[in-house]
Write a protein that binds this DNA or RNA. Structure first.
Lengths: 135, 135
DNA sequence: TGCTTTTGCTTGCAAAATGCAAGTGCAAAT
DNA sequence: ATTTGCACTTGCATTTTGCAAGCAAAAGCA
């Protein structure tokens, strides 16, 4: 765990996921079926292998994800959001809603965000339920 | 403006404020009366002068803040959130709520977060109104 | 009016983080 | 038995960050 820069909770949370990659990994875990090292490597943004390893380690150390044995193969590892990680969903939803106003995106995604906006709580509960079901 | 890393809006937003300092500057503009370069320098986290200058420039370029003449003095500059910047409030509120569960903080702040949680929309509207009144 | 302080930076350099390419060890498939 | 897939690690170049010092314009003060 890192030494917090200040008493401010915002500052603490930025030390946990305030970089260019962590939230993208969390996004993959939340909205896609990506759950292995190679899955994340294949994401559009093109994270470097060493950076991915470092981020996964830090997310695990900070209790955001768990690293588990993959049921299909001993060669694979399974990464999964913890409860603490799942609870980042409202933050990510708000980021999507904000970006929706200022950044072009696919009609598909726009429609999903519209859904989320209509009843945020319902949307968050639904996704949370799905994420927990994966356990 | 930066070249986006991917089509993903989350990725775009991280390019705008996904670093260890930008949201802290935005926090200062939202919840404290800090509005000048020196005000930000004096924040608890201790941002370096060159980094602050770089972040202010990038936030301005991304339309999150405006840099204005200070009414009191020509030596001072006045930094202010734009509408786009003010709209980051829901994100920051969610971050505070998340952190509330996993990080110790002052009773004062805890009480404020409790208030915000009780009726998020009302809380956000109230702060937004106050921020716009500064214009 | 001259001198000091404040303000908002910039510059130079060291240290850390990032990015890229290649390599490694184990497991699984052929 | 050999190749492929998976999850990394390592070495090195590049970029970003952090720290200390400096600097010009404006303001405050004598």
């Amino acid at each position: 765990m890192i030494q917090p820069r200040s008493e401010c909770p915002l500052s603490y949370s930025l030390d946990v996921f305030g970089d260019k990659w962590s939230l993208l990994i969390i996004r993959d875990l939340m909205f896609t079926n990506k759950c292995t090292y190679n899955d994340f490597i294949k994401s559009d943004e093109g994270i470097a292998t060493n950076i991915l390893a470092a981020r996964l380690k830090s997310l695990e150390e900070n209790g955001i994800i768990d690293k588990l044995e993959h049921p299909d193969s001993k060669a694979k590892k399974l990464y999964k959001l913890t409860q603490k990680g799942i609870e980042l969903l409202p933050i990510i939803v708000e980021i999507y809603i904000w970006t929706d106003k200022y950044f072009a995106m696919s009609a598909d995604l726009k429609a999903t965000i519209k859904e989320a906006k209509k009843d945020k709580e319902k949307f968050i509960k639904q996704i949370t339920k799905e994420l927990k079901a994966k356990s």
